[in-house]
Every structure is written in structure tokens, then in C-alpha cells.
Design a protein around this nucleic acid. Sequence first.
RNA 1: GGCGGCGUAGCCAAGUGGUAAGGCAGGGGCCUGCAAAGCCCUGAUGCGCGGGUUCGAAUCCCGCCGCCGCCUCCA
Length: 467
Amino acid sequence: MALQVYNTLTRKKELFEPREPGIVRMYVCGPTVYDKAHLGHAMSVVVYDVIRRYLEYRGYTVRHVMNYTDVDDKIIRRARELGVSPMDLAEHYIQEFERHMRELGLMQPHVKPRVSQEIPWIIRVVEGLIEKGHAYVLENGDVYFHVPSKPDYGKLSGRSLDELVEGYRIEPDPRKKHPADFALWKAAKPGEPSWDAPWGPGRPGWHIECSAMNLHHLGEQLDIHGGGQDLIFPHHENEIAQSESYTGRAPFVRYWLHNGLLMVGESKMAKSEKNFVTIDDFLKEHEADVFRMMVLQSHYRRPLAFSDATVQQAEAALARLRGGMKPANPQAPGLDAGPAAELQHQAQEARQAFIAAMDDDFNTPEALAALFTLVRHINKAREAGATDAQLQPAQEVLLELGGVLGLDLLPKTGAVDVQPFIQLLLEVREELRKQRLWPLADRIRDRLAELGVRVEDTPAGPRWYLG
RNA sequence: GGCGGCGUAGCCAAGUGGUAAGGCAGGGGCCUGCAAAGCCCUGAUGCGCGGGUUCGAAUCCCGCCGCCGCCUCCA
């Protein structure tokens, strides 16, 4: 078995073979930092976090780059509304996004370049494109990429230039040589951030930053480029045009991965739809793994339904996975050698099924199905009287595979020193139960639950856990 | 209008030619003082609709219907 990934460029699943064996160069489009991030952004970063974790689990060394767009029309506009400097505004939201990444349990990208710090590389690429005849400078200092200079333009999004022109819903700028030409550099305007360049001061257009950052941090050709499906056109199409025209090398990207969008009812979660839930608001009500679970329960290329019901379902599913990690029943007699060995075997099968599922274009719903099956086997073994020592190997597999998905399935143990007190309370409660003083016994259980200690009675005595 | 994609049980969602995973919710049972947790059993004779190809189709082809994304900033 080998890893297969779906490539937007070819619209097929392909055998994954990085250009340099064992090394994966991966770039993911990050946010434009002009406002609070919502769950749509969170979905994207979680998807690529899982992909990276799995690649590393499979033994690849991943070099992961995610950019921050901190120079942009929207940032400038919003800063003006708020009366702050665009750079201060961007810095604020970068810090906030950094916090989100920690709260969501994401692995840190190795490099997180910002447009404002990549200007020399951007200028170098724009200059190269002008020299090679792929770009031209207007009188006012704007620089445009000339789309017809790239004959295979449209290969990613599946559009021809003719189709594009027909589809235009806005009047093309008459100064452009071709209606599809797009800005690489916008001439400086009063009150906007700008940098000097050989053809005049200004700031970069949106698409050029990713080409320049890739060149700088990953080289001329990369293995994986990810982003939301809404970035396929024009952003990624333009990125290909820029990079391949500049370097003269193709393909710029071996595997283009695009995640489906987060849906609220029938439309995508977006700022403009006013249907978004911010990451902060979600995390006030739920832990991060609930969101991750929701993302994992659907395939990354498909749209993901977001609603109160799907959140609740994810919460329940997560609790079920964690249930597999519960300890053995008190005074468990132990399993015979046969059934004990059977559990180990089932754990190995679960691992194989998990890998097979993930190898098939990161099929996380199927991978989760393997984990649920393992949980059922563990639960059965526990009910059959397995000891902790007998459960442990299978539980370690569960923990390992959950970890590959970025889930923390380990029950919270809390401070060690509270345990004697809980034990004491439970002993007292057992006495009360023996004397059939149910109201008092239930009160202890209810009060402990309020304090976050869940007590479950079993025939052999009570067990408890934090949660 | 153009391009891309989707439509699978109450909900979420895998499966892309070999006879429908998994989770949630629901029902029945076991266990239990109760509760919780867990275990067992249970749900689509059918995968938007209508044709076609095939020994065989949710999966391929054709035609409809509905929905979404992109074509303007967007993860």
C-alpha cells in the first residue's frame, strides 16, 4: 500500500511521490489578517494539520510553510475605519491567529512568512517577470501579469482564456493589454503602505506574494500546495502562471490539494454572508477537539456541514472515542490468554485499517471507523474482565492513531493529590449505598459531577474520571 | 451565461462496477437501587428522478430536477 492523493490539477488520485524522496515541501495559504478568524479558517488549518501529521507518521520529513497576508486592500480599508495603522492592525490579528493555532492544537508551520517581510523577494520575481516579457509596467507604476504569455493558463481551474473573457461580470480596466491580466504591483497611493521598487513605489498584488514566498522558503518546485476550494481561481491559477513563468520550471506544484468549505445551511461560512462563528466564540462553548472531530468526520475535499446538531454529534463521537481509554473495571479478574491476545490482534488490525484509509487520500471518516471498531473491542474486553495491563496495549494503539489525527484522547488525570480525597468520598458513598441511603449517595455523585468528577458504578465498585 | 462539484436512512457521513462503513439520534434487551457508561439486537430491498450499457450499477453513459462553489475579496 502506498499513499494516494487527489490532485486538483489532474482531477485524479495519484500515487504520492515527492520530488525528493522522504522530504515533503508543503505550502498552505494562510489568512489575510484584517479581522477575527472564523471556523472556516479553522477548518482549513485543521485539515492541513492532519495531513501533515499523517505524512510525518508515514515517515516523511515535512517542511511546512504558511503565509500571513499582512498587506492588502481589506487591511488598509479596515485600518482606516478604525483609525489605526495597517501594520498595527495586521500585527494584532497575526498574534490572535497564533493564539488560535495553539488553542486548536495545531502543529506550528516551520516558517510563517509575512508579505511585509518578503518585499525583496517579491520585487525580484516581479522584475524577472518583466524582463522575460510576462509582465508590463503601466504609466502610473502599476505592474500587470500578461496572461496570454502563459499558454497553458487555466489548467488548474479548467478554464480557457476565451471562457474567462466571456464570463467577466465587470468591465475590464482599459489600460490592461488583456482583460484577464492581473496586478502584480499596485502603484503607491497617499496614506497607504508602500515600498520602493525599480519601476516605482507601491505594494504587491495579492497573488505574487505566494509565488515569492514559495521561491524563498521552499524553492522553485514544491510537493504540496493547499488551500480552500475558493482559492483555485484566480489565486492558485495565477500563482502557477507567475511561478512557472519566472522559473521556467513546471510543474510548480506536484500535488494541488483543496479542502471543501464549511457550510452553514446552504451557503459557505463567510464574512460577507454574516453567518460565521468566530474561533473564539466556538472555543468558549466547546473544546478544540470537538471542532477537529467535526472536520475529521467528513472527507476534507467535501463541504462540511456546520450546525448545532453536527457540533453535538461531534461532541458525542469524541466522548465515545475517549471512552475506549477508560481504565479497567475495579477488581477485574483478568482475561484468559486467548481473549487477551485477540484484543492485541484487533488493535493491529485497527492500525492497518487506519493506515489503509488514510493512504486513500486522507480518508479520515474511514480512519475514524477503524478507531470506533477498536473502541468497541476494548470496551468488550473491559466488560469481559480485562485488567489495565491487558487493555493497555490496545489503548496505546488507540492513543497513537488518535494522535495522528491530532486528537487528545488521554483522560485528564488532574492533580495527583486530589485522588486520595476522591477515594475517601467514594468509600463513604459506598457505605451509604450499602445502607441504602440513596439520596445521600446520589448527592455525593451529583456534587462530584458538578466539580468535574464523573462517577460510574459497576458491579465491582465505583470508578471515576475527570470530564 | 461559462467552469467545477454535489444530491446515500431522522441528522452527519464513507463507499466510484460485485451486491450499502462508521458516528449521532431512536426502539428493544442485558447490567443497575437509580443514573451514567458499556455490551447485544434493531433501521435504507435501496443510494434525487427517468431511461440506457452490463451477468451484475449508489458506482459507467444520456436526459431531467434540485442545490452549492468559482467567474469580484475569501480557508
